[in-house]
Simulated assay, not measured.
Amino acid sequence: MKRFWMTLMAILFALPALAAELGDDGLHKTEWMRDTFKDLREDLGEANDEGKRLALFIEQRGCIYCTKMHTEIYPREEVSSYISDNYFVVQLNLHGDTEITDFDGEVLSEKAAARKWGLLFTPSILFMPEEVSEDQTAQSAAVAMMPGAFGAGTTLDMFTWVNEKRYELDSEEDFQRYHARRIQERQDGSTD
């Protein structure tokens, strides 16, 4: 019985270290998320200046799938480093009141932007191109969207597929085919 209590105490003391940091808005925070004025045109410019891709993470307080991503997937070194090295990440709150400026110049709350873009579920990630015309919204300009929580391999493959601009290639390897190939390569040991 003593061993049980010692094990339980060890687990309880380890829990705060395993938990993702929560901000005042109740959303999980990572070191690679940017705190910006949420003018998406400016954020895109900064991302381009840094040689990175802009990704918009739409999340909400209490989202169990957001928690899964922030506690199980994003902390993995290969995922975290890839995002940090290649992406300029701006987090938006599905129900937030913070003002943002969409690419089309409209100033609206985060929750109004989410409705405008037709986003219903969290997490959702919008991957932006390097250039967006001033008549486009974030949703209409996005080169890809990742709706929901996925495993580390799928997440890393999506970020890689977008970063390598495979959506532009003339091949027939859409994301699903790319991801299936990457799974096979990992099983065969022919990739990292």
Score class of each variant (00 low, 15 high):
1 M>R: 13
8 L>G: 12
10 A>G: 15
11 I>W: 13
13 F>V: 14
13 F>Y: 10
13 F>L: 15
15 L>H: 14
19 A>F: 10
22 L>W: 15
22 L>S: 14
23 G>W: 09
24 D>P: 15
26 G>F: 00
28 H>G: 01
31 E>V: 09
34 R>M: 13
35 D>I: 06
38 K>Y: 07
39 D>K: 06
40 L>F: 11
42 E>C: 10
44 L>T: 01
47 A>Q: 06
50 E>G: 06
50 E>N: 10
51 G>S: 05
56 L>Q: 01
57 F>W: 07
61 R>F: 02
63 C>D: 01
69 M>A: 04
70 H>W: 11
72 E>Y: 07
74 Y>W: 12
75 P>F: 01
76 R>E: 14
77 E>I: 09
78 E>W: 05
85 D>F: 08
90 V>W: 03
95 H>A: 11
95 H>Q: 15
97 D>E: 15
102 D>M: 04
105 G>L: 03
105 G>F: 01
107 V>R: 15
107 V>D: 08
117 W>G: 00
121 F>G: 13
130 E>D: 13
135 D>Q: 08
136 Q>Y: 03
140 S>Y: 06
143 V>Y: 05
152 A>K: 01
155 T>R: 02
156 L>P: 00
159 F>I: 03
160 T>F: 02
164 E>Y: 05
165 K>D: 11
167 Y>M: 08
168 E>H: 09
173 E>I: 09
173 E>F: 07
173 E>D: 13
176 Q>S: 14
177 R>T: 10
179 H>W: 09
179 H>S: 06
183 I>S: 07
183 I>R: 15
186 R>D: 10
192 D>N: 12
